[in-house]
C-alpha cells in the first residue's frame, strides 16, 4: 500500500497559502495607506514580478515532498490529485487567514475600497458615464465581497483556479520527481 500523501499536501498548501496571503495583504496595506491616484493602480514597485506565480508552486512542492519522503515513484495522475488538493486547501486556508486578519484590522478592506474608488474617480481618461457605471460596480463588488456569500464565493473561485493550476504543476512535479522512466 502506498503511503498517504496528505502530510505533503497540507504542508505545501500551508506554505502557498501563507506566502500568497502575506503578499496579498502587503499589497492591500500599500494601497489602503496611499492617497487615491492612478499610481496605486500601478503597483509594480511593490509586487515585483517575481511574486507572479507563487500560487503555482504548490503542486511541485507537494509532489517533491511526497516522492522524497518515501522514496517512491507514482504516475502523473497521482501528481494531479496531489496538486489539486494542495491548491484547494491553499485557497481555503488563504481565505481563512484573510478573514482572521479582517478581525485583527476590520477597517482595512474599507480603506482599501475607498482608495481604489477614489483612484478611479480621479481618472479622467474614462468617459464620465462609463466611470459612474464602473464606480457603482466597484462599490457593489466590494460590498458583496465582504458578505458571507461573497467570502464563500471568493474562496470557491480561488479553490477552482488554484486547484486546477496546481493540478497542472502536480503533474509536472510527478514527472520530474517521481517518474520511473529514464
Amino acid at each position: 500500500m502506498k503511503p498517504s500523501y496528505w502530510p505533503s499536501v497540507i504542508q505545501a498548501a500551508i506554505i502557498v497559502a501563507v506566502v500568497t496571503t502575506v503578499v496579498g495583504l502587503g499589497l492591500v496595506y500599500y494601497v489602503a495607506g496611499s492617497e487615491p491616484s492612478m499610481g496605486v493602480m500601478m503597483i509594480s514597485g511593490l509586487t515585483i514580478p517575481i511574486t507572479c506565480l507563487i500560487g503555482l508552486i504548490g503542486g511541485i512542492l507537494a509532489t517533491r515532498s511526497y516522492a522524497k519522503a518515501f522514496d517512491i515513484t507514482f504516475p502523473i495522475g497521482t501528481g494531479a490529485q496531489i496538486g489539486l488538493f494542495t491548491g484547494i486547501i491553499a485557497a481555503v486556508v488563504g481565505g481563512i487567514i484573510g478573514q482572521i486578519w479582517n478581525l485583527v484590522d476590520p477597517s482595512l478592506m474599507e480603506r482599501f475600497a475607498d482608495t481604489m474608488i477614489g483612484a478611479f474617480e480621479m481618472n479622467d481618461q474614462i468617459p464620465e458615464a462609463q466611470k459612474d457605471e464602473i464606480i457603482t460596480s466597484m462599490e457593489e463588488g466590494f460590498e458583496d465581497q465582504s458578505s458571507m456569500g461573497g467570502i464563500l464565493k471568493g474562496i470557491a473561485i480561488n479553490a477552482g483556479v488554484l486547484g486546477f493550476v496546481n493540478l497542472l504543476s502536480g503533474m509536472v512535479g510527478a514527472k520530474i520527481f517521481a517518474s520511473e522512466e529514464e
Binding site: G55, A90, G141, F142, Q145
Partner: peptide, 15 residues
C-alpha cells in the same frame, strides 16, 4: 480590478 471575478480568480497567481 479587484472586483471582476476574473481578477479575483487570479489574484493569488498574478500581480
Amino acid at each position: 480590478p479587484y472586483v471582476s471575478f476574473q481578477f479575483e480568480a487570479f489574484h493569488f497567481l498574478c500581480h
